[in-house]
Simulated scan of single mutants.
Amino acid sequence: MGSKNKLKRFKENETFTNVIQPSREEVIGGFKFKGKWNSFFDNDYPIVLELGCGKGEYTVGLAKRNPAKNFIGIDIKGARFWRGAKSAKEENLGNVAFLRTQIELIDQLFAENEIDEIWITFPDPQIKYKRTKHRLTNPDFLKKYKHLLKPKGIVNLKTDSEFMHGYTLGLLQGQGHEILYSNHDVYKNAGSPPEVLEIQTFYENQYLEQGKPITYIQFRIN
């Protein structure tokens, strides 16, 4: 993507009422929507997050299927989720928002027990050992998720990375978390929830063209 295109998208994001772009200082200093996200949406619907939302396909796709839930896509790359934000505006989806920030700050953005569900879709597996702290299912992130999720809240991981799938399964089993469902190849093995099969991201389509299996885990943090 050219720099002019990026700048155009950044400027358009600033005009979207469904895009929130706080500074790091605003987040750490006491984020105005922490614990008050239902005031942003002006309803009391359950809140679902997509972490590393990319172009926002899952955020928008889930929102279409679940009008009685609110969906927030989080990513640091605003030029990517511009597409999802624009689509949500064009389709008058009032239950969609996009938040431009670092996922590491998630516990500064949401209050305890404020979130019902989390989706992690095609994250960077951060394969090198020194990058372990950046894996979105590492123990530190799981602690943050547990704090934010309601007691029965669930986490969904959909990835093309067999490494990420195996790492996460091993960690969940080792720490005694509740694995609700696991599938090593969702399009080959039946049983995955409809939203896993019916919503496909830009990158997922590329992985499928390459013949990569798509994996999925649904779990609850104990």
Score class of each variant (00 low, 15 high):
Lys34His: 00
Lys32His: 12
Asn18Asp: 03
Phe31Leu: 04
Gln21Lys: 14
Gly29Phe: 10
Gly30Ser: 11
Thr15Pro: 02
Lys32Glu: 11
Glu12Pro: 05
Gly29Trp: 07
Val19His: 05
Ser23His: 04
Gln21Arg: 15
Pro22Phe: 13
Lys32Pro: 05
Thr17His: 04
Asn43Gln: 04
Asp42Phe: 10
Asp42His: 08
Lys36Val: 03
Lys34Ser: 11
Ser39Trp: 06
Trp37Cys: 06
Gln21Glu: 11
Ile20Arg: 00
Glu25Tyr: 12
Thr15Ile: 15
Lys32Asn: 10
Glu25Ser: 14
Trp37Asn: 05
Asn13Phe: 12
Asn38Thr: 13
Asn43Arg: 01
Glu14Lys: 15
Glu14Pro: 02
Val19Arg: 04
Lys32Trp: 13
Ile28Val: 09
Asn43Phe: 01
Pro22Val: 13
Thr17Ser: 09
Phe41Cys: 03
Phe31Asn: 03
Ser23Lys: 12
Gly29Lys: 01
Pro22Asp: 14
Thr15Tyr: 12
Asn18Pro: 10
Gly29Ala: 09
Ser39Glu: 11
Asn43Ala: 05
Glu14Gln: 14
Lys36Ala: 06
Gly29Met: 04
Glu26His: 05
Asp44Ser: 15
Phe33Ala: 04
Asn13Tyr: 06
Val19Phe: 10
Gly29Arg: 02
Lys32Gly: 05
Phe41Gln: 00
Val19Gly: 02
Val19Tyr: 02
Glu25Ala: 15
Trp37Arg: 02
Asn43Glu: 00
Lys36Tyr: 08
Glu12Tyr: 07
Trp37Lys: 03
Phe31Arg: 01
Glu14Cys: 09
Asp42Arg: 12
Ile20Ser: 01
Ile20Tyr: 01
Ser39Pro: 04
Gly30Trp: 11
Lys34Glu: 07
Asp44Tyr: 08
Phe41Tyr: 03
Asn43Ile: 14
Arg24His: 11
Glu12Cys: 05
Ile20Glu: 00
Glu26Phe: 13
Lys34Ala: 06
Gly30Met: 06
Asn18Phe: 01
Phe31Thr: 09
Phe16Leu: 12
Ile28Leu: 13
Ile20Cys: 03
Gln21Asp: 10
Lys32Ile: 10
Asp42Gly: 10
Thr17Leu: 07
Asn18Arg: 01
Thr15Cys: 03
Phe40Met: 03
Asn38His: 14
Asp42Leu: 13
Ser23Gln: 13
Arg24Asp: 13
Arg24Trp: 07
Ile20Asn: 02
Gln21Pro: 00
Ile28His: 03
Asn43Thr: 08
Ser39Phe: 04
Asn38Ile: 09
Gly35Lys: 04
Trp37Asp: 03
Pro22Ser: 15
Asp42Ile: 14
Asp42Lys: 13
Phe40Asn: 01
Lys32Gln: 15
Ile28Tyr: 12
Glu14Met: 12
Lys34Val: 07
Phe33Val: 04
Phe31Val: 05
Gln21Asn: 11
Lys34Thr: 10
Glu26Asp: 11
Thr17Asn: 00
Phe16Val: 06
Phe16Trp: 08
Arg24Glu: 09
Val27Met: 00
Gly35Arg: 02
Asn18Tyr: 02
Val19Pro: 00
Arg24Lys: 08
Ile20Asp: 02
Ser39Lys: 14
Lys36Gly: 09
Ile28Phe: 15
Phe40Lys: 01
Asn38Trp: 06
Ser23Asn: 14
Gly35His: 07
Thr17Trp: 05
Glu25Ile: 10
Asn18Gly: 10
Phe40Ser: 03
Asn38Pro: 09
Thr15Ser: 15
Phe33Ile: 14
Glu12Thr: 14
Ser23Ala: 07
Lys34Leu: 02
Glu12Gly: 06
